[in-house]
């Protein structure tokens, strides 16, 4: 079971290469210097976190429709990965903020939304833990996952408005059209390698959950 499959090697290799390229090969950002290199972790983490939570939503809805536990296994696996990535986004964002604004936390709207997302999905996993019956757990988690995800834009816009009323956002952010082409290419490459890692971990985590279910539902019909 502990053998790493070819896709796993591929994902690991892609991640290693993009990190090395990001750290050493790509030139430093003209305005921010070396610290900007954290972008190659920060931005893909954030994007993949949102993707992961979207997958949780979609898998949850599919479970409600088909009543097939396979979908729920994808939902929980993706939520856990999303939570880790959200944590990574917050941590790298804070480090980046400390280096550029001199503050670990500056209530940047995107980071604040991500932090709220973190606690919402921590709640999702805690809810799952406290429901014993397997199918019931899947059902309630799907409902909570739906409410949680549809709440994201509302969280984001309220934080944005709230910031807007206090002070305008001042930060230079990746995604700026003036960003250097080489930097952009590396950013896209790191998003791609993070995606590979996400898919590989998701696959492994789903398999693990399937094993657990097989043990837990030994008496139940397949499904």
């Amino acid at each position: 079971m502990s053998r790493i499959s070819p896709p796993g090697w591929l994902a690991g290799l892609a991640l290693t290469v993009t990190i090395l390229v990001g750290l050493f090969a790509v030139p430093a950002d003209a305005a921010q210097g070396d610290v900007q290199r954290i972008m190659y972790v920060h931005v893909p983490s954030a994007w993949l976190a949102y993707l992961a939570f979207f997958v949780t939503l979609a898998a949850g809805l599919l479970f409600l429709r088909r009543q097939d536990l396979r979908f729920d296994r994808v939902a929980v696996a993706s939520a856990e990965i999303g939570l880790v990535l959200t944590g990574l986004t917050i941590a790298t964002g804070a480090i980046w903020g400390k280096a550029t604004w001199g503050k670990w936390w500056d209530w940047d709207p995107r980071l604040t939304t991500t932090a709220i997302l973190f606690v919402i999905y921590a709640g999702y996993l805690l809810l799952r833990q406290s429901i014993v019956d397997r199918r019931r757990r899947a059902r309630l988690a799907a409902v909570f996952g739906t409410v949680a995800f549809l709440n994201v834009p509302i969280v984001h816009f309220s934080v944005l408005w709230w910031r807007g009323l206090h002070q305008p956002p001042t930060v230079i952010r990746p995604g700026d059209p003036t960003i250097d082409h080489l930097l952009l290419a590396e950013l896209l490459a790191s998003v791609a390698s993070f995606t590979l890692v996400y898919l590989w971990v998701l696959r492994r985590r789903v398999d693990l959950e399937a094993t657990r279910d097989a043990a837990e539902l030994a008496l139940e019909p397949a499904g």
């Binding site: 709220i116 606690v119 919402i120 921590a122 709640g123 999702y124 805690l126 809810l127 406290s130 429901i131 014993v132 309630l140 409902v143 909570f144 409410v147 949680a148 709440n151 509302i154 969280v155 309220s158």
Partner: peptide, 27 residues
Amino acid sequence: ALVVALVADAGHRPLLLPVALLPLLVP
């Protein structure tokens, strides 16, 4: 009302309710 229904017969309800509800109520 919706979150209370979700956690109504979950274990550790007194702890779970604020953890599940308050983040959703941030906006």
